[in-house]
């Protein structure tokens, strides 16, 4: 998978790269509209992570150029602006998603993955993690062909864990992703309960030792 990160904050771009890059994912970084245009005209990307406030202009011009050329690269806008007009304009020109800073890297990973897969599989999107088969559009999961009875929250949780495969997910990040009331003192206990339920349901069909507890921090999903 080829990703382009268009972000003028070098430090943030590095964090995004460090989080998203893996054995089958390569990240390129552009800090200006000009650099970004050079890169997108040179090669295709599965997904462009696009900041709007760039030193030499608005990131939307990169998006416009892509659409003008009829390109199919996925685009996730990442911006500190959340004025409704910007959001509508971005999605109108053809961005796939819009995420407001600050965001959790795990959240970005889910959005990028969804964008890439939507473009590639056009609605027929199945993800495999060993015996686990996830149907993203249908929000269902199977292990060895056996349908799992997951609540929407549990499916969302599984989605987040798998999108950040091999990475540690802090409990607070999970709580926020599940739209829990993160300021509630019980939020983290609820996360604990959800993860345990999910683990139990997976174990019932023999899918064990994939979600690891990282003591004092959170959870990590990995395949064998």
């Amino acid at each position: 998978m080829n990703l382009l990160i268009v972000e003028d904050e070098r430090s943030l771009a590095d964090d995004i790269r460090a989080y998203l890059e893996g054995p089958d994912t390569r990240c390129h970084i552009a800090a200006t509209v000009r650099d970004a245009l050079d890169l997108v005209l040179d090669k295709e990307f599965d997904c462009v992570i696009l900041d709007l406030n760039l030193p030499d202009g608005n990131g939307l011009s990169v998006l416009r150029e892509l659409k003008k050329q009829g390109r199919k690269d996925g685009v996730v806008i990442v911006s500190a602006k959340d004025a409704l007009d910007d959001r509508i304009e971005g999605l109108r020109i053809g961005a796939d998603d819009y995420i407001v800073k600050p965001f959790h890297l795990a959240e970005l990973a889910v959005r990028v993955q969804a964008t890439v897969r939507r473009a590639l599989f056009n609605g027929q999107d199945l993800l495999y993690f060993d015996e686990l088969e996830m149907d993203l559009p249908a929000h269902t999961a199977k292990v060895n062909g056996i349908q799992l009875a997951l609540t929407p929250t549990e499916f969302q949780l599984l989605r987040l864990l798998t999108a950040s495969k091999d990475r540690v997910l802090p409990r607070a990040v999970i709580a926020e992703h599940l739209a829990e009331d993160a300021d509630h003192d019980r939020a983290q206990e609820l996360v604990y309960a959800h993860v345990n339920n999910l683990k139990r349901k997976l174990a019932d069909v023999g899918y064990v030792d994939r979600i690891h507890t990282v003591y004092g921090v959170g959870y990590r999903f990995s395949t064998t």
């Binding site: 904050e9 430090s11 943030l12 964090d15 995004i16 460090a18 989080y19 406030n53 500190a80 602006k81 959340d82 004025a83 407001v100 800073k101 600050p102 965001f103 959790h104 890297l105 795990a106 990475r167 540690v168 802090p170 990040v173 921090v217 959170g218």
Partner: peptide
């Protein structure tokens, strides 16, 4: 908008660092 941007970006940076540290 400026206030939003000026504070959101540092929070995003800090959050990124923390999440990398978690790894």
């Amino acid at each position: 908008e400026n206030a939003a941007h000026e504070l959101r970006t540092p929070i995003a940076l800090l959050q990124g660092k923390l999440e990398r540290l978690f790894q």
